[in-house]
Design a protein around this nucleic acid. Structure first.
Length: 736
DNA sequence: GTAGGGTTAG
């Protein structure tokens, strides 16, 4: 923005002729250069105004300087270093300037500096006043320093400023925010100052420690409740997960004729989102539209979040696309909405659009987008994001970001990178350890996972139920039956964690695979809860391995009851029949499936090349490079045959679709993805693929050979775990 | 004679 320099009637204000003490206030207040300040939207414009102020001589006045500093230190378009520069250029800053500087610093990420200025102010002979203490107390709260806070409280009393309403509330708030609720209450009780603001400060203290009932009692005492008091209560109920109370309070508020504001609506909508109350959300929306607030970006963001969390992605997307100006939060809620509903490709697409729109992603963006990368196996994009975070968030102490990176790398097949991130972390949360242990487990690196577990307990971290899912699944992926048994009983006895379905699932899997069916069934019978499909499914899988047809049939019965719509059960049972050559039964099941109109979930494999995720279905012919892919597939089959590979047809039912006749075995989705990988990546580089189902035995054997023939490491993620194919063998040692 | 306290979304 260029300044309208000529239109400013500088000559009428010959201020530079005036002495150091400020000219009459009225004259300054209406000065055109200063009124320009309020219109500033960037630091560049501010600097222009500053030079203007120097030209007019206004910079000799403390008033103008205080206004400049205020803009730099407090406004969202400000620049704190510039404010400090200005401040240090002043010989004897007055009280207002000191207060403004302290105010700016109290808002910054370095509240310690505000305290430093407060001390310097007193040293320079200027007394703090009732404007100083709210900022100073806010800084104490931010630093979470109880000692400094109490000292400042002493100074407030010495100066007799505790009777000022603003200072009083700031004291309550300081104590409430530093977990000294008893002191907050004491300050409140001792004073006759009881307006809605001081009540609300105390109420939020109670809310922060989860005392909703005490908060409610205080709320009922407030002589005149204002909108903020209502908002605080509604937010408290939402935070406490008492969504019904929150929504009831909102209705009560409207009945009490208190007009909701932006905060109210954002909070209420967040409550609807978290509790999945679509109907209430719609009602709130109609209220918003009726009151003309449908264009407020913060409210629309909250609406988008509400709709996507309640499963109405289309409505959410319509609202999102209808926005003229989208902020980070808008983008983040929409990306998060897609991730929430497992629409990972849409989430990725939106993230790319966000970057193209030059919107700077935030930590929340990464927490939504990295799980999408993980789910799709989009390693290159994940790596790019990691580099971006390293560059822009170098000093970020956000542990959850690093934890999410560990998870992303593990699930994208790069367990080494996951370990690097884990090792580089200075501070770790329980979740970081859990992510690393589960990562090692899904890669079949049981020994390392168990090692990490003991390291974790040595470092005094307390394992939780999720840790043990990782530990037990490590045992189950490696077939470590005895160790699995030991950890299972240690979990119950040493850590007092009662096993849930996932823990039992691992144990049933271990026992079943070892052929200990009696023990597995006994375990299931002794469970406190009803076994779910995963437990029976795991047992059914074991029946296939051990060719236990009759047991398989009875297990399948449980599954038919539990998951009548799951075609996978039929497929597995038919594979059991096929395994013992009972082809009549195989055919019977196929007819059964057809009659029920059920189709097996199509196998789908994906591979990321140059940050684009390519998906393949069985016998897929839609890829633009389809011909090259099938040429490569033919070459692969020829070479496999030459190497003496004999296809195992015992799992043909996996190709129940029409294509099964054309020998679709060699056109399984994972083979298409591998063929595409072979033609589209450099020789010798690793090929990574992701499959939605378990890899079949035939493809497993074929891939082992492919890794040798083409000299490629192939890392495949299936529904359960990772397989690292290299030099003709697989990391799972054919146990999966 | 500038300014200041309590509520808000991912």
């Amino acid at each position: 923005m260029a300044l309208p320099s000529t239109s400013v009637p500088v000559s009428t204000f010959p201020l530079h002729l005036l002495p150091a003490s400020d000219p009459p206030y009225k004259l300054l207040q209406n000065h055109p250069s200063l009124s320009l300040l309020s219109k500033c939207k960037s630091i560049q414009t501010l600097k222009q105004v500053h030079s203007h102020i120097i030209k007019t001589g206004l910079h000799h006045t403390q008033f103008a300087l205080s206004k400049l500093i205020e803009f730099c230190a407090v406004s969202p378009f400000g620049d704190l270093p510039y404010a400090l520069l200005l401040f240090h250029s002043i010989d004897e800053p007055n009280q207002v300037i000191w207060n403004t500087m302290i105010r700016g610093l109290s808002l910054s990420s370095t509240p310690e500096l505000a305290m430093e200025f407060y001390v310097k102010m007193i040293w320079s002979g200027i007394l703090p006043n009732s404007y100083t203490f709210p900022f100073v107390l806010k800084s104490c709260a931010k630093m979470d320093s109880t000692q400094v806070g109490e000292q400042v409280h002493g100074q407030v009393l010495k100066l007799g400023l505790d009777s000022d309403a603003f200072v009083h509330t700031s004291l309550i708030n300081m104590y409430a925010q530093t977990s000294q609720l008893r002191n907050a209450r004491l300050v409140f009780d001792k004073s006759p100052l009881r307006d809605a603001v001081s009540y609300t400060a105390l109420i939020t203290g109670y809310i922060s420690i989860g005392y909703m009932e005490s908060a409610r009692e205080l709320f009922d005492e407030i002589p005149v409740r204002d909108v903020v008091s209502w908002n605080a209560m509604i937010a408290g109920y939402v935070q406490a997960g008492q969504y019904e109370d929150a929504l009831a309070f909102f209705k009560e508020m409207i009945e009490a004729n208190v007009v909701p504001n932006e905060s109210t609506l954002v909070t209420v909508l967040s409550g609807c989102a978290q509790s999945g109350s679509l109907e209430m959300g719609k009602w709130v929306r109609s209220w918003i539209d009726d009151h003309g607030l449908g264009f407020n970006i913060h409210i629309v963001n909250a609406l988008i979040d509400m709709y996507s969390k309640c499963g109405e992605l289309d409505t959410a997307s319509d609202l999102f696309e209808g926005l003229e100006q989208r902020d980070v939060i808008s983008w983040n809620v929409m990306i998060g909405g897609y991730t929430h509903m497992s629409c990972h490709k849409e989430a990725l697409g939106l993230f790319q659009r966000m970057l193209q729109s030059n919107i700077e992603p935030s930590d929340v963006t990464f927490l939504s987008i990295l799980p999408a990368c993980a789910s799709l196996g989009a390693l290159d994009l994940g790596k790019w994001i990691h580099a971006y975070i390293d560059k822009n968030f170098q000093y970020s102490d956000n542990i959850s970001i690093w934890t999410t990176l560990i998870d992303m790398y593990s699930k994208c097949g790069s367990i080494e990178a996951a370990q690097q991130v884990f090792n580089s972390m200075k501070h770790r949360s329980l979740a970081s350890w859990n992510a690393m242990i589960s990562g090692l487990a899904m890669h079949g690196l049981a020994e390392k996972a168990l090692e990490l577990f003991s390291r974790m307990t040595n470092e005094r971290y307390k394992p939780d139920n999720i840790t043990f899912v990782g530990v037990l699944s490590a045992c189950s992926h490696a077939g470590l039956l005895d160790l699995g048994r030991q950890y299972f009983s240690s979990m119950v006895q040493d850590y007092a964690i009662s096993p849930d379905l996932q823990h039992y699932g691992c144990m049933v899997n271990l026992l079943g695979r070892a052929g200990l069916f009696d023990e597995a069934e006994a375990l299931i019978q002794n469970m406190e809860m009803k076994p779910d499909g995963a437990i029976w499914g795991s047992l059914l899988g074991a029946c296939r391995v051990h060719k236990r047809v009759e047991l398989g049939e009875s297990v399948a019965k449980h599954l038919f009851e539990l998951e009548p719509e799951n075609p996978g059960v039929y497929v597995l049972l038919s594979n059991i029949y096929a395994g013992v050559g009972r082809w009549d039964d195989v055919a019977r099941i196929r007819t059964l499936l057809n009659n029920k109109g059920m189709k097996k979930v199509p196998g789908c494999s994906s591979i990321e090349v140059d940050r684009v995720v390519h998906e393949f279905l069985v016998s897929d012919k839609v890829h633009p490079r389809c011909k090259e892919i099938y040429d490569m597939l033919n070459e692969v089959d020829t070479l496999l045959e030459k190497a003496g590979f004999v296809p195992d047809t015992s799992e043909v039912l996996q190709d129940m679709d029409e294509e099964w006749k054309e020998g679709a075995l060699s056109h399984h989705s994972e083979k298409l993805a591998i063929a595409f990988g072979l033609i589209s990546t450099k020789p010798g580089t690793t090929i990574r693929i992701v499959k939605n189902l378990r890899v079949c035995g035939n493809c497993h054997s074929a891939t082992k050979l492919i890794s040798k023939i083409f000299n490629r490491e192939i890392i495949a993620r299936d529904r359960n775990r990772f397989h690292h194919f290299k030099d003709g063998s697989c990391s799972c040692n054919d146990y999966w």
